[in-house]
Design a protein around this nucleic acid. Sequence first.
DNA 1: GATATCGCTATACTATAGTATAGTCCTATA
DNA 2: TATAGGACTATACTATAGTATAGCGATATC
Lengths: 129, 129
Amino acid sequence: MIETDHQLSTCMSILKPVRDSLDVLNGKWKLPIIVALTFGEKRFTEISKEVHGITDRMLSKELRDLELNGLVRRNIEESYPVKVTYQLTEHSKSLRSVIDSLKDWGILHKQRLAEECREYKKVKKVLIK
Amino acid sequence: MIETDHQLSTCMSILKPVRDSLDVLNGKWKLPIIVALTFGEKRFTEISKEVHGITDRMLSKELRDLELNGLVRRNIEESYPVKVTYQLTEHSKSLRSVIDSLKDWGILHKQRLAEECREYKKVKKVLIK
DNA sequence: GATATCGCTATACTATAGTATAGTCCTATA
DNA sequence: TATAGGACTATACTATAGTATAGCGATATC
């Protein structure tokens, strides 16, 4: 019982950091934007063209979010006219393993669902016979 | 150029499975429910009591989602009255590494943000001087 | 007979995420 | 002078996630 409580509280303490990570990555556009910035800095309209379907409003907001979370840096070139570029930060590289982990599980999960579906069809076939 | 296109398409192919994983874990209640079921099967009202603040409607919906994704199994005991229990599946155990990865990054990220904040204060101090 | 528990569902609402469309202020170019 | 691009912001909308509250049909308990 004490053991269980201890384990449970351990589990609970996992929830907060997991939520933090999910919040940073969540939404429809964060990851596509990160991908677009993977091979060097880009300008607002360049990102907008690469991330198909995003509106200016969303891009502006998501870039601000990513900047606040220290994943993206906004550079202003003091030229005429000013040139604004966005690039990934060092910190953003630490996301690599998280993304890999999510990708691997996503693939595994799809396979599992497909297997389950085949199982179901097999069962149905037997039942029909 | 060809190289870059190739790398980009690789990145894009990562997006879908990552999205799949995020969709499965997303929302306010999925993870707390999974935690509640970590130490054995539980009944509807037991989960409801452990996951503080969740409404019956949400619990019902989220359990159905988790069941559809093969993470939770619903058992009906044919007794009078019927007893319904929920438990984690084998497949749900494969989430372990994903959750660990998210947790680790969440902790790292908080630290990074805290450091950045200290940096900022240092800079501000210098500027005020 | 009245009340309580179990495992939900129904209805109606609010809050947050995302979309659609237009406009602004700057400079550059035809 | 007109048009276009860059980097946004403003306004208004829709869609999805989540909340609040109530009810229901079964059994069990007082």
